[in-house]
Design a protein around this nucleic acid. Sequence first.
DNA 1: ATTTATGCAAACTATTTGCATTGCC
DNA 2: GGCAATGCAAATAGTTTGCATAAAT
Lengths: 132, 132
Amino acid sequence: MKRNTHQQQIVFNTVWELKGKHPTADELHEYIKPKMPSISRATVYRILNQFVSEKKLQKILVPSGADIYDCRLDTHLHIRCNNCGRTMDTDIPVIKDFIDILPKSPKYTITGYDIVFNGLCAECTMRKAAAN
Amino acid sequence: MKRNTHQQQIVFNTVWELKGKHPTADELHEYIKPKMPSISRATVYRILNQFVSEKKLQKILVPSGADIYDCRLDTHLHIRCNNCGRTMDTDIPVIKDFIDILPKSPKYTITGYDIVFNGLCAECTMRKAAAN
DNA sequence: ATTTATGCAAACTATTTGCATTGCC
DNA sequence: GGCAATGCAAATAGTTTGCATAAAT
């Protein structure tokens, strides 16, 4: 039977607390440690994986970087900022289901995708515009 | 001044020899070792990085997996096969430039993207169809 | 002869796992 | 009390780096 532990609660709550910040597992661990010094990195990873497979959290796979966690469960697209290094939400619409706009091909069976845009996030775009 | 070494030649040629196979750096190293047993993994990684920054090879960032290398330099999309585990080319058209079809937003500055589709590659789709 | 590139081992980043122990139900 | 979950350390995967040596020009 599944059990409800303090570490599970704090990990889940912290992902919500950092909504929009897209923390990595390690960042979550560092953030939680002051409140619960005994919590181990392995536990944070294990709990995050559980919540993801229970579809209570979303994991975004960032190309050549640590995976990030999101309390948002809807499909939405992200941009990796070359300037500040963070991965941020975009409001680029996902067109109901992005897969549907692809030219149909019987060759493959496409069930999903990982997309991360590269460039500058909203803040860094603004900052750069102000510098001109 | 840049020098032309045997290891550089063999790495570059091997990526061409394995065209469409999308080898990882480690797979390239294993493949080359019989021909040049002294070659080290570090050298393969270094040479691949060089060729990529000289734009003589393309690196594709595979979400939670090893990066793969491609002698094709044009932008094209890939599918990660859940069945055989390989990352294969697709002929999904990139619509001249995929970025152009995105709704314009002054908020971000999108300069590129990493996309990998998930599902079944052409071979595994066929194999599955035959099994029915 | 010079100096870049290589080989080796160690370091590093991100993540998982084995195992003894803790603590939820 | 029993067994799921944790903490710790070690293992793993992928990649980079420092440094002495080899080899290209």
